[in-house]
């Protein structure tokens, strides 16, 4: 079974079967346990993992870096924002070719959809998509599913409400795609009309036979077992005044949860957040986003060790 993992590229969450995800989660569970007990085996000692961040992302990068180092691997790489040759016009393809000759695996992040697939076509070493464009962020989706599984005991049979930018947000999109590998009771979307999921994403939900609907936030919160909140960027609105008018309709507050939510509801967010979940939710039983963020390291450790082990 582990033969399916070694040397494998991770481009889209759709590349994985449910059985493979379950296997990953079991590994992540034992990674988490050994982290807590402070006895992590340095399985990747002597390995080098390249972090090619053509688009900056502090969280994803630090989480991969921590995962690699916990397993004894070294990391090399760059993060755009510093002056890299990529900004001076070097292609992603050339940069990947170079890193392929240096490292044992490459984590790539870019604002262009399909960058990770292109990198995988070029590189001989495994390529892990750390987020490309608006569609794929497979490791985030793995972390999200893992967190639901950990806190709710299962992924099937739950009502998922997904809030925010479902059109351009890669975390939300990847989470929706990930749900097609399971059997949710239903999925409820809460978003402004122009930020609804893209047709190719809805097509996959339909193929998987998953029921979905659109609702106002209050109604979605009332029905949900899992509330997945994402940020709506102001830039998505042609008119800033329009944004100011609607943003309150997508904000999760403690008083909203107290009024509507089930006691066992779990609130997830891929972070960073701005004000779409108010801080008074942080110390409630509903809050699961800090657990989710912390799960980033063991899940990525499990993934790296399966691929490079």
């Amino acid at each position: 079974m582990e033969g399916n993992w070694r040397g494998r590229d991770v481009i889209s969450i759709l590349d994985f079967t449910r059985e493979e995800l379950e296997e990953l989660f079991k590994h992540a569970e034992s990674m988490k346990k050994s982290l807590e007990e402070g006895r992590v085996e340095k399985k990747l000692k002597g390995r080098i993992i390249a972090l090619a961040f053509f688009e900056p992302s502090t969280r994803t990068r630090l989480s991969f870096e921590t995962a690699a180092k916990r397993l004894g691997a070294d990391t090399i790489g760059f993060s755009s924002g510093f002056s890299t040759s990529v900004e001076k016009g070097e292609t992603i393809a050339d940069t990947i070719r170079m890193l392929d000759s240096y490292a044992d695996a490459i984590v790539i992040r870019s604002k262009y959809e399909g960058s990770a697939l292109l990198a995988a076509e070029i590189a001989g070493k495994p390529v892990i998509n750390g987020g490309d464009g608006k569609q794929h962020h497979p490791t985030q989706a793995m972390i999200d599913l893992y967190t639901v599984r950990e806190l709710k005991g299962r992924i099937d049979g739950l009502v998922y409400a997904i809030v925010g930018d479902l059109r351009y947000g890669r975390a939300a999109t990847s989470f929706i795609l990930a749900l097609t590998r399971y059997q949710p009771e239903s999925v409820i979307f809460v978003s402004p009309p122009q930020l609804k999921p893209r047709p190719e994403v809805l097509m996959l939900l339909e193929e998987a036979g998953i029921r979905y609907s659109y609702a106002r936030l209050e109604d979605a919160v009332e029905a949900a077992d899992v509330l997945y909140v994402t940020r709506i960027q102001k830039e998505r609105f042609p008119d800033p005044a329009e944004y100011e008018k609607v943003k309150g309709s997508y904000r999760v507050t403690r008083s909203l949860l107290e009024e509507k939510a089930k006691r066992e509801l779990k609130v997830l967010h891929p972070l960073p957040r701005v004000d779409e979940i108010t801080h008074d939710v942080d110390d409630t039983e509903w809050q699961a986003y800090f657990t989710q963020a912390a799960n980033g390291v063991p899940v990525r450790m499990a993934l790296l060790s399966l691929i490079l082990g």
Partner: peptide, 21 residues
Amino acid sequence: INPTCITRKPREPVIPRFRRV
């Protein structure tokens, strides 16, 4: 037709590929 598709990025050596729906 997606302006942020990698196949639209200048100088990137990639040929657009499509699969029938």
